[in-house]
Design a protein around this nucleic acid. Sequence first.
DNA 1: ATGGTGGGTTCCCCA
Length: 260
Amino acid sequence: MRLVTWNINSIRARTHLVEDFVKQYDPDVICLQETKAMDDQFPVKFIQALGYEHMALHGMKSYHGVATLSKKPFQSTEIIDWCNKGDARHIAVKLAEGPTLHNFYVPAGGDVADPEVNDKFAHKIQFLEEMTEWSRRLSEPSILVGDLNIAPHEHDVWDTKKLKKVVSHTPLERDMMFELMAAHDWVDVMRDFVPLDEKLYSWWSYRAKDWSAADKGRRLDHIWTSPSLKGKAKAMEMVRAARGWEKPSDHAPVLVDFDF
DNA sequence: ATGGTGGGTTCCCCA
């Protein structure tokens, strides 16, 4: 099974990217975040024409939104309302005779890394706490993917010292992500393929003059599995080229091939 | 210390 996770930054503005990606990589399952479309605005016919008959959509007006698209039917679909806010940051599907696939869009957290003065950062902290408790109770084999908005390791960012106070790489967020991973013994699939002393990013700001030359990236997107699926990932590719396509998302897609 | 770009419920919010 070939799976891709991609923060698409508006599905309606970037159907061309999905089409180009499918032509080149032909994934079986596509997990999108920041779709920014209500379910009745989602380009269902366009996606079906690309070969993805089965869709689990959880959108809302203007912001957030996740979607999981598949060539094969799902056994079931589940939505969790994290932090009781009624936003659209998670959808889970049970894959036919396979694991459950959780597609997440974790809050970005705003600019100031202090929950006392920044409600968005407080929301991010609460979201991570809820994910950690949920991970402790999770028993079935699962895949967890998405834009988790944290770059946990030193070489998940272009300069760990310069980003020490920048939301996404603060010590608190990094520690919370490690605690979250320990809560289910989540396997960091991307880092199983790229050693910790090598730079690995999945996001580059739109604001850089030349994003690729500057290369001030961060690894905000992740692919994790339950420990029982360790070794089932046979290949991984962070498709950096897609960040340079026409009208790109600021995130690159991350691809993984599973041995099932 | 500041501003840079891009999407959407567009003259403001969110990333």
